[in-house]
Design a protein around this nucleic acid. Structure first.
Lengths: 117, 117
DNA sequence: CAAACCTTGACACAGTCGTGGTAGGGTTTA
DNA sequence: TAAACCCTACCACGACTGTGTCAAGGTTTG
């Protein structure tokens, strides 16, 4: 068996057991469960936990920021709404060329395809 | 002059003056200023404020979520780091085809170009 | 000039985030 | 079977979000 319990996983990732449960609740890293309900962390989860910790520290962002990014990545309508809103500011003055619009629309379609696939 | 003061802008957007200052502090809608420092809301700002309100209500997201999305849109390194992390989960099991990687890399490069342009 | 605005800064307060505990109750294992 | 785990469900507490209100002082305008 190459799965660690929550306490062992905490030891090798730098998170506390308490935080591992919290991260799971946030929907970011959900380990498998044993028959009796124990969390079983595999190599993939451990790696994700380590890189997550690094991500938060490096950019000084929060778990909820990453959770929001994840939600956006999975919900095309949300993502398009937010990106559309952001698009409406930045370069309204002068520097909006037709090409920007084309690319924006094209990427939107690609995302739609990706979401369906 | 087609610019409204903060109180007038509040009236036509549904935000309170207090919240308009808060939204500005969050970096989301920054109106121009008069010589004496008064906030001057133009048509573009008013529109952005209305659609922002709708965006928050429709998806039940927070100002800080939108602020984070804006930060990601402007910082390629942050965006790539977060998307890369998200990429590392979802479909690790079986359904990762080479095409997905190609598209991911290609979009990364496009974003780099877009950021420089 | 006085009323009615505007500005920044501060206090307040409920709600959420990030964390650590603790309690009551199963599971594993020496 | 008893120690050492694990689980869920709470309480607590500081920091931040969202929002209102108030204070001290400048600006616009009837």
């Amino acid at each position: 068996m190459q799965s660690l319990t929550i306490h062992e996983a905490a030891g090798t990732t730098g998170w506390s057991p308490r935080m591992l449960r919290y991260v799971e609740q946030a929907g970011l890293v959900a380990p498998a469960r044993s028959a009796s309900g124990y969390r079983l962390y595999g190599a993939a989860e451990l790696q994700r936990l380590r890189t997550l910790k690094e991500l938060l520290a490096q950019f000084d962002i929060s778990l909820s920021d990453v959770a929001f990014a994840q939600r956006m990545a999975g919900a095309v309508d949300l993502r398009d709404a937010v990106e559309g809103w952001l698009q409406s500011q930045a370069e309204r003055p002068q520097n909006v060329q037709a090409e920007d619009w084309l690319r924006f629309e094209q990427e939107k379609h690609e995302r739609l395809l990706a979401a369906v696939a």
